[in-house]
Design a protein around this nucleic acid. Sequence first.
RNA 1: CGGGAAGUAGCGCAGCUUGGUUAGCGCGCCUGGUUUGGGACCAGGAGGCCGCGGGUUCAAAUCCCGCCUUCCCGACCA
Length: 469
Amino acid sequence: MASPNALTSQSEDFPRWYQDVVAKAEMADNGPVRGTMVIRPYGYALWERIQAEMDARIKLAGAQNAYFPLFIPQEYFAREAEHVEGFSPELAVVTYAGGEELSEPVVVRPTSETVIGEFMAKWIQSHRDLPLLLNQWANVVRWELRPRLFLRSSEFLWQEGHTAHVSYEDAAAYAMRIHLEVYNDLLANVMAVPAYVGIKPPRERFAGAINSLTCEGMMRDGKALQMTTSHELGQNFARAFNIVYQNEAGQSELCYTTSWGASTRLVGGLIMAHGDDRGLVVPPRMAPIQAVIVAVRDDAEVLETCASLDAALRAAGVATTIDRGRGSFGRRITDWEIKGVPLRVEVGPRDLANGVVTVVRRDDGSKHTASLDQLAPRALELLEAMQQSLFENARIRRDAATADVTTVDEAIEAAQTGFARIAWDRIGEDGETRLNDLAVSVRCIQRADGTTPTSPDEPDLVAIVAKAY
RNA sequence: CGGGAAGUAGCGCAGCUUGGUUAGCGCGCCUGGUUUGGGACCAGGAGGCCGCGGGUUCAAAUCCCGCCUUCCCGACCA
């Protein structure tokens, strides 16, 4: 009775499994130019859910959306030394346009600190103009040598926030607020990803930042994925772009700026954080389709019941779709499982004879019976239970795959299958180099209680060490 | 960008070593019928610049050169 596998199993070949899921769940295709990505409707719907949840949180944090140009004068990048050094290897530069060689080449934005800095300088005059809290939804280009759908593409979609503040403390507090209230909240409560939160070790910082905050998720193969980053830029960009304000005493002062971003990589993280051998598993709060109503047979009475159940679920706020009974039952539900739809409501003659339907949870395969008039409340319960359970199980997996160790060698050993937690001061520059030589890195540094420190120099910090995507 | 592997129908592959009819197979797709509670079956059918460009040859999917793309492993990154 066992059906042939639709997908390569995770244990057999995890990268292959990932590609199979992306293709068979109809999420994305490779574009014609190396490293580019075509996002298909189902993949884009997942991104739109992330956007909607993220945008609401960003606005709650007080930032406003704006839009800056795709093309940036190359000269802007030269103004901040570390920034230009960090980004030049992956820049796409337009040198020829309008039928002729350009006198000054323009860069296709890999990130927008520079243009936005230029305009912040123009818009900010007084301390009364601060803080200036901006965000933009945009595409960016970073020429990638080793692309992978969603995880690393030469063009990707993201949001990038850019803010300016009167003081270091204000800027640092805002970066922390975004890190926790926007990013980690979205990861935990919507995407059901229990991230390790913390700061990047100095060598992993964003080019031009004085401190980078990160949320690191654990994928089901035990590797880490940096899911979001928030940067304290100090006065580096304010100095390069002359972002100054007059304080209450009438003196000119440099602003402190921040930037923070999250990209379509999150869709890849979602796939790898929850997916199983049957395909994607989408947390209910993330799901473009939360319940699929499957007509076991293509027959009038069944279809009529499907339509009324669909109406009832929609009225209760559940996103639904109906699978009319064409094609074999097994094939149809396999396809819905690959797409990770949280609930499957099976409607067949046997159910109708008893006045019930069968509801199946995607995450654990458990089957439940609901009477026809109680489906909506039952579905809401099951969706909520699944949401909680996905987070809880991911947390258990993460904790089980995180080893407490005391030496760099043990950390390297643990990183072969999962994460290692080790005192930050036990690593040192040489230790970090040894890790890096073996494709292992310090993913983040946190306090002993798991909270995010303000600097890598705080005492008694611990490092989370792993291999990463 | 360095090392390895591979590009033949939408997907997965055979054919290439030893050049020679009309380039095959499975899945998927289309039509009709029977089906439908875990990837259904029968019959009929459509679909190919054999990755691209050049070369060798009477003749190239097959041999040679260049390029592009994909996958794996490294260095870089959201």
